[in-house]
Nucleic acid binder design. Structure first.
Length: 449
RNA sequence: UCCGCGAUAGCUCAGCGGUAGAGCAAUCGGCUGUUAACCGAUGGGUCGCAGGUUCGAAUCCUGCUCGCGGAGCCA
């Protein structure tokens, strides 16, 4: 047996050309041509083509290869060489084989499958090349997020997943029974806790799962997703927008630097990502409305009887998908839209001192139709103003007493934003559907596997 | 919640009133540089469920179930 030979991961093959090594992995696909066989192996670090020549191996090894099926697990001994025709491609000239387990009738065949079928087999789908590439990009985005904030002296503070009340009062939450304390909810944002933490640690970030029980059925929505939410004491809206731009540039350039192979598997147009450098675009809400009307982007109003009428976009209305799409069509970089009408935004956002009808809010829209990836704002730091906002939004004061404490004891201007991990990965990978960005996605009509 | 679309072999789909089909996968055979390899053969079906129209329904009609996409909401 050749157990003395070193085990080498496929990703390291380029450093071991000419050496005899062992590969521990699975059969990805097999092609054969008479006395030649081309099994493809994967081991989690990559995929490599094996070459088995009948004249070079014993009869028993050849016969063993003939029994291999897709996704059977194997330990293969062979010599690494360069591909005779392709640049920067390596192959394994096989001399010996240990079969660990033979897989029977692996359901995901090398042919097209529908999304529903693949979603049912998500636990197996993750083994395929595309999903491998996406998860590796996701991993890199997560690392970039952590590194970005850690390098800038932010402290990671985890917010609770189980919360006693709604943050914004608008979205639908997952409800659960919490012993004798009554109803509790799965968090839809760690922001309020982020604010409290920022008063203790200056600059913090919350990074964890978030839950929304809305019945959204689109390519942009999951019911469970990850969000990173930095929150900074003594930051105003301008500083926050600048940080958000630096942050997004950092993430994209980092993925471009470290995960080119994965992006290539996904056939991503790298030139589109290379352009994601500052300065990004910025547009006030008011200017955006003006632009929409100048370019005849109408708002479709639906009446109760189902009839539709097209009207000029009225100032004060929130943007929907058609408006965001039209605005972004002119840009190949992200664009921040800031200073929205206060009425369409959350209670905790600070009013613009120069125009109280505006909130110091901002959204970052990504290009190529990727949509909103960031939402943020400067927070209301006045006790009296915040109290008034709670009343305007018909929110009870009692559950927010702890939050009001932040304005009672050493209140300071502060700001923050939230970035959706899966939407960012979807954009960077150039995916059609957000479901592929989560290893085990949760959607309105699916919570399995 | 609203508006569209769909359900036929393990998978992807064609068939749209007259004996249920193809490609891939599976099984068997052929091929020494293949790249979702290719070539030949074999097996494989409660046409989502229930009812109706008809001499005859996968096909037309009604209801139901499940799913997909979009809107709204948002990251």
């Amino acid at each position: 047996m050749s157990s003395a030979l070193p085990h080498v991961y496929i990703s390291e093959f380029k450093h071991h050309v000419g050496e005899q090594v062992r590969l521990k992995g699975w059969v990805y696909n097999i092609r054969s041509s008479g006395k030649l066989m081309f099994p493809e192996f994967r081991d989690g670090s990559g995929i490599v083509q094996g070459v088995v020549s009948k004249k070079d191996v014993s009869d028993s090894v050849w016969q063993q290869f003939e029994t291999l099926t897709q996704e059977s697990s194997v330990i293969v001994t062979g010599t690494i060489s360069k591909h005779p025709k392709l640049e920067n491609v390596y192959e394994l000239h096989v001399s010996d084989l240990d079969i660990i387990h033979i897989a029977h009738d692996y359901p995901i065949t090398p042919k097209e499958h529908g999304v529903e079928f693949l979603a049912d087999k998500r636990h197996l789908w993750l083994r395929s090349k595309r999903q491998w590439a996406i998860m590796r990009v996701r991993h890199e985005v997560i690392n970039a997020i952590r590194d970005f904030f850690n390098q800038r002296d932010f402290t990671l503070i985890d917010s609770p997943i189980i919360t006693p009340n709604a943050v914004e009062g608008t979205t639908t939450l997952f409800e659960l029974d919490y012993f004798d304390l009554g109803k509790a909810y799965l968090t839809q944002s760690g922001q309020l806790y982020g604010e409290a933490s920022a008063m203790a640690f200056g600059k913090v970030y919350v990074f964890g799962p978030t839950f929304r029980a809305e019945k959204s059925k689109t390519r942009r929505h999951l019911t469970e997703f990850w969000m990173v939410e930095p929150e900074m004491a003594y930051y105003d809206l301008e500083m926050t927008m600048a940080l958000a731009e630096e942050f997004v540039e950092y993430i994209v350039q980092r993925v471009l630097e470290k995960r080119k192979e994965e992006l290539t598997v996904l056939e991503r147009d790298l030139t589109k990502l290379e352009k994601i450098t500052r300065p990004f675009h910025r547009l006030s809400y008011t200017d955006a409305v003006e632009w929409l009307n100048k370019h005849n982007v109408k708002l479709i109003k639906k009446a109760a009887d189902g009839s539709e009428t097209e009207i000029d976009f009225p100032w004060g209305e929130d943007f929907g998908a058609p408006q965001e799409e039209a605005l972004m069509a002119q840009f190949d970089k992200p664009c921040i839209i800031h200073r929205y009408p206060a009425e369409v935004k959350a209670f905790y956002m600070k009013r613009d001192p120069e125009n109280p009808k505006l909130a110091l809010a901002m959204d970052m829209l990504a290009p190529e139709g990727a949509g909103e990836i960031i939402g943020g704002s400067q927070r209301e730091d006045s006790y009296e103003a915040l109290l008034e906002r709670l009343r305007e939004h018909n929110l009870p004061q009692e559950p927010f007493e702890w939050y009001l404490d932040l304005r009672r004891y050493g209140s300071v201007p502060h700001s923050g934003f939230g970035l959706g991990l899966e939407r960012t990965v979807k954009w960077i990978c150039g995916l059609e559907h957000i479901r592929e960005t989560s290893p085990y996605p949760r959607m309105i009509y699916r919570n399995t596997p």
